[in-house]
Amino acid sequence: RGFLEKAAVKKMAKAIMADPNKADEVYKKWADKGYTLTQMSNFLKSKTAGKYDRVYNGYVIHLD
């Protein structure tokens, strides 16, 4: 289950990176699912340092 969630989160993160207008909708879905910042950090780990920082930081702001 965790692997599928991670894959889904990364897919949506890539969608945000391609079209930032989708961010609020995606952040709301993640918040509704109760994803914590720790979970998001783990889901968005990448071999490329900083690749998903913008998405993660946007989610931090959304939760605030």
Rank of each mutant, 00 (worst) to 15 (best):
E25Q: 08
E5S: 07
K22D: 04
M40L: 10
L4T: 10
K10F: 09
R1S: 15
H62E: 02
V60R: 12
K10N: 04
L44Q: 00
V26R: 02
M12G: 10
N57E: 11
K14R: 12
V55A: 06
N57V: 11
Y35K: 01
N42P: 01
A18Y: 08
H62Y: 15
D64P: 04
Y59F: 06
D32Y: 08
D64S: 14
K22A: 08
N21C: 15
E5W: 06
K11F: 08
G2C: 15
A7T: 10
G34S: 04
L63H: 03
V55G: 01
K51T: 08
A23C: 11
T36A: 03
V26T: 09
F3N: 14
F3A: 13
R54S: 15
A49F: 08
N21Q: 12
N42S: 08
Y52N: 02
F3Q: 15
M40H: 01
K10G: 03
K11Q: 10
K51A: 07
G50M: 05
G58K: 03
V9F: 04
Y59W: 03
Y35P: 01
R54G: 13
G50R: 07
L44C: 02
K14A: 11
K29E: 11
G2F: 15
L4D: 06
K11D: 06
K14T: 07
K6G: 10
W30M: 02
K28Y: 04
G34F: 04
D64W: 12
K28G: 06
M17Y: 04
K51V: 13
K10Q: 10
D32R: 11
M12A: 12
S41K: 13
L37E: 06
K14P: 00
G50S: 08
N57R: 12
A15F: 06
K6N: 05
F43S: 03
G2T: 06
T36V: 03
D32A: 12
N21T: 13
S41Q: 14
D53T: 11
T48P: 14
D53M: 07
V26Y: 08
Y56Q: 02
F43D: 02
F3K: 15
W30N: 00
E5G: 09
A7C: 14
D24I: 10
Y35D: 00
Y56M: 08
K28M: 07
M12R: 04
Y27L: 01
A8S: 11
K33V: 08
Y35C: 05
Y56W: 05
G50Y: 05
D19F: 07
T48R: 10
V55Y: 02
T48V: 14
K33G: 05
D24H: 11
M40S: 00
D19L: 04
A8W: 12
K11W: 10
T36K: 04
I61K: 13
V60I: 08
A23D: 02
E5C: 12
G34R: 06
S41V: 12
D64Y: 11
T48F: 07
M40V: 14
G50V: 04
N57M: 12
S46R: 05
T48M: 08
A7G: 07
S46W: 09
V26E: 03
D32S: 11
E5A: 08
N21G: 12
K33H: 09
M40R: 01
I16R: 00
I61V: 10
N42E: 14
D24V: 10
N21M: 10
L63G: 02
K22R: 10
N57L: 12
M40P: 00
K28V: 06
K28N: 06
W30K: 00
Y56E: 02
D19P: 00
L63I: 07
K22F: 06
A13E: 03
A15V: 09
I61S: 12
I61T: 11
F3W: 15
A23V: 03
T38I: 14
E25G: 06
K22L: 13
A13Y: 03
Y35A: 02
V60M: 10
T38E: 12
A7V: 14
L44K: 01
K47T: 11
K29F: 09
V60D: 03
K29W: 09
K47A: 09
Y52G: 01
I61N: 15
I16W: 02
F3V: 10
R54C: 15
G2I: 09
V26P: 01
A13T: 02
Y59M: 01
L44W: 01
Y56I: 12
N21F: 08
V9P: 02
I16H: 01
I61G: 07
A49N: 12
A31R: 11
E25H: 08
F3P: 15
N21D: 08
K45M: 10
Y35V: 04
G58S: 03
G58W: 02
A7P: 04
